[in-house]
Design a binder for these strands. Structure first.
Lengths: 149, 149
DNA sequence: ATAGTAAACGAGAATCATTCTAAATACAAG
DNA sequence: CTTGTATTTAGAATGATTCTCGTTTACTAT
């Protein structure tokens, strides 16, 4: 099921953290932008609109905290900055398709990697806890543009 | 087949690059350390042993150049620095297993991801040119240590 | 061989995302 | 209210990477 505010609140309190206005605002930004992959600077810019005197350091700390309590998932698309997305219980196995033309990032659901993980464990004894899979190429739209151009 | 010095020499000259002693030395470092994943700093340290007055900027420039001509493959293990390995013609589909305990990186050969790429193209029209797959977990040795400790 | 020219070099400054520090503030519990 | 702890801000620090610029070098054509 989708992650709710109540869950986040509970997780924070369980670990002895406070629900400050800054954290509240940053959580809201992510909940209002589900499906997007926000960088610290993206969040900072959005936060500034409503909280003009928030510091960037707080954004970084909050992102780190939200990752620790499994609210956010840290992503790396190789563009030199970390990005984050909401980690719902039901989005556990989607992969990212990065278009090298327009930079757009789409998602793809598939559990084929589970089979691969099983094969790896069988052959090497390696116990996998997490995987990262990214695919680089050209999205359907950019292919069409290239044909028509 | 394995990448030879002659191939590298040819590729450099074809594109109008010069074969300087510095480049020669850096190429040699990679050929003498096949299978390892060297960072710019690793290369710099090794280079210093024989060429004490080489600059780090040259290392970065050379790594970039060698990547451009497909001699090296740039890797990102999420430790905040880029790493490089020799890109042989025959190592096209190995994945990296990163042990979260000891940091060791092992490799695993498998073409299962090809099937996944086909599935993605069929469903989304996305034309994939490259993929990155990394698996994080605990290697067999660290598991044993944990059991015995 | 020699000189000309573009490429490459070294040293250090600059950049950029991220992390740390120090001092100030807010919150929860007694 | 007071005290201890968590959190915040602003700015400095960090660390990998890139840029700049004056100098040097490898290749080319004389």
């Amino acid at each position: 099921m989708a992650l709710m505010l109540k869950d986040i609140y509970t997780r924070l309190l369980e670990r002895g953290h406070k629900l400050t206005p800054q954290r509240w605002a940053i959580i809201a930004i992510f909940l209002m932008n589900r499906g997007r992959h926000l960088s610290a600077d993206d969040v900072f810019a959005m936060l500034r609109e409503t909280h003009p005197n928030n510091g960037i350091a707080t954004v970084y700390r909050t992102l780190e905290l939200l990752e620790e309590i499994d609210v956010l998932k840290k992503l790396d698309f190789g563009d030199g900055r970390a990005r984050y997305e909401v980690r719902d219980d039901d989005n556990h196995h989607h992969h990212h398709l990065v278009c090298q033309q327009c930079g757009k990032i789409t998602e793809f659901e598939d559990d084929l990697l589970i089979a691969l993980e099983a094969a790896i464990h069988k052959k090497t004894g390696f116990q996998i806890t997490e995987h990262v899979a990214k695919f680089y190429g050209v999205c359907a739209e950019c292919q069409q543009k290239a044909e028509n151009g």
